[in-house]
């Protein structure tokens, strides 16, 4: 009766069957939760932006303060073990905002402190943030090259 999975067709068939019998979270409900929490985080961001601007800061500076404060709050909530609980509820609502990025930096830093300053915290702090920074820098560089070439053309 064993099929060692070499037969791709049976593997596909089994996968399809498993998908059928495996319960999943309700997508609309999950989306609503993500919408709510993600939206609220953005509102908080907007509040910081507006406050910064009424204090006479420029748009760019206000944006920096906004990131800074949101990241601080996220790291704090991660350390206090609140962020993972919030994320369990909100899913992408806490993953997508910049606070999700901060969580992905703080969580491994806290977890891997036992493995040392350099190869524990130092390496693992980039486990998730590293790829985000790498591909962000790389994709903006590639697009920048296109922009640069187009500027030469003109």
């Amino acid at each position: 009766m064993t099929d060692n999975g070499k037969n791709e067709q049976t593997a596909k068939k089994y996968e399809k069957y498993v998908k059928k019998v495996t319960p999943t979270h309700s997508l609309p409900l999950n989306m609503a939760k993500a919408f709510l929490v993600g939206g609220l985080i953005c509102v908080l961001g907007q509040y910081i932006l507006n406050t910064a601007e009424t204090m006479g800061l420029g748009q760019e500076e206000a944006g920096s303060w906004c990131s800074l404060i949101l990241i601080f709050l996220s790291v704090l909530l991660t350390g206090l073990n609140v962020y993972p609980k919030l994320a369990k509820f909100a899913g992408a609502g806490t993953l997508v905002p910049i606070t999700g990025f901060a969580n992905s930096v703080a969580a491994p830093a806290i977890e891997y402190q036992k493995e040392g300053q350099v190869f524990g915290i130092g390496c693992k702090i980039f486990t998730i943030a590293g790829p985000v920074i790498l591909y962000g820098v790389l994709s903006s560089w590639i697009l920048g090259v296109v922009y640069y070439v187009m500027q030469l053309w003109r």
């Binding site: 999943t24 994320a87 369990k88 899913g91 993953l95 999700g100 992905s104 491994p108 977890e111």
Partner: peptide, 11 residues
């Protein structure tokens, strides 16, 4: 890591 926010599927 334990403090990382993620959702676990029902399976």
């Amino acid at each position: 890591p334990l403090a990382y926010g993620s959702q676990r599927p029902l399976s």
